[in-house]
Amino acid sequence: MVRKVGLTDSVGFACLEDLQLSNSYMWGTAISLDYCGREDCIKGWKFGPYVRESYVIHMVKKGKGTFTIAGKTYELGPGQAFIIRPGEETTYRADDDDPWSYMWVGFHGYRAEDFIEAMGYVKGSPIIKIEQMDTCAECINKMLEYSQITRINEVKRMSALMLLFATIMEDNASDAQESDNIEYPSKIYVKAAVDFITEKYMNKIKIDDIADFIGISRSHLTGSFKKEMGVSPQEYLINFRLEKAASLLRSSKEQINIIAYQCGYEDSLSFSKAFKQKFGMSPKSFRNLEVELETNDAKFGHEASKL
């Protein structure tokens, strides 16, 4: 089985996507790059309504457009950026007279909300400013440049992503400073739980074990997790184990039942069922999956090839 990581590079449009198929170092980590790109939009170009599975930040270099979320429409221009969170239905549209040129980056990870908060975003206010737009553009261009499916390029892309995040944080430091100086108990509990899972995921642990280790009730832990992560601790534990399993399937030649055991599954059938539910294929098919870079010279070329 072959899956394509798509690189489209044409006049006015460039996009590197489906990187989650090739990431080897980033499974189960704090942040992972899914896709990125840039576009000089045509007049009136509209995208949506659409619901994303990743977090996505769009940065407007020049021109104007509108962004609609939760029934509210925002007008944006150069030096502004809007955030889309997973599960949010959004629509955005280029201006009829002065269409925008923008860049975007899509990502996921258990620390995604922490990064977003540090950039100055707050829920209910999806717009922030960006003063160092040229630096942000360099970061996006570097990610596009490091398109080959190698571990070195994977790390280079992540380096460019971290520099992008740091640049946006720096531009909005005064906006985020107050929240940076406040410690929320729920965050402390969640961090302790994540550290526990990271160290003990291969063992037969239960959510009660994690709560007991931290010293809070299971219901308190669940509430803290849902507040900070958007998922329950049980969902996080399952997802973490499966992503670790995916990484081992790619990087080792161990038998699948051994990998299942190493990731906390004593029953290989239960493991296979859970793995297929998450990744859409069996562990065996995932191990045999070949990821190739497909280069296109037209917008939507990669998407059309998947149909």
Rank of each mutant, 00 (worst) to 15 (best):
T222L: 04
M133F: 13
E39Y: 07
K156R: 11
Q132W: 05
L16S: 00
A192Y: 10
S159D: 12
D212Y: 07
I130R: 04
L269F: 12
I259L: 02
D114Q: 12
F47V: 12
V5Y: 01
E183S: 14
D95F: 02
C139D: 00
Q177G: 05
I197G: 05
R151K: 14
E199S: 11
I210D: 10
Q234L: 10
Q177T: 10
S268C: 08
N181K: 14
K191S: 13
T222S: 13
K276C: 05
V194M: 12
G280P: 08
M26I: 01
C263N: 13
G79I: 01
C15V: 01
I31H: 10
D267H: 03
M103D: 00
M103I: 00
S232K: 08
I152F: 06
S252R: 15
V194P: 10
K227D: 12
P99H: 01
G77K: 05
I130A: 04
E183N: 13
F279S: 08
A166Y: 11
E138L: 04
I238S: 14
P233L: 02
K253Q: 15
P49T: 03
Y35K: 12
L242R: 11
R287L: 06
V2I: 09
H220A: 12
D209G: 06
K4Y: 10
A246K: 11
K306L: 12
L237C: 05
E39C: 09
I83K: 13
R111N: 11
M119E: 11
D195F: 09
G48L: 02
Y146F: 08
M281H: 06
S232C: 07
W45S: 11
V190L: 03
E131W: 12
L237M: 11
N296G: 13
A304C: 12
S252N: 10
S247W: 08
T66V: 07
T29F: 03
G77A: 01
T167W: 07
Y35L: 05
E89C: 10
L7H: 04
Q262E: 10
S224Y: 02
I207G: 02
G65A: 03
D34M: 07
A160E: 00
P126K: 07
E235S: 15
E53Q: 14
F300W: 13
Q234V: 05
E290G: 05
Q262I: 01
T167Q: 08
F240G: 06
N181I: 07
R111V: 03
I258N: 15
M26V: 01
L221M: 06
R85N: 11
F107Y: 03
E145W: 08
G87R: 10
Y102Q: 07
A298H: 15
M119V: 08
F82R: 05
G120N: 09
T29L: 05
K299W: 02
K123S: 12
Q262R: 13
E290L: 07
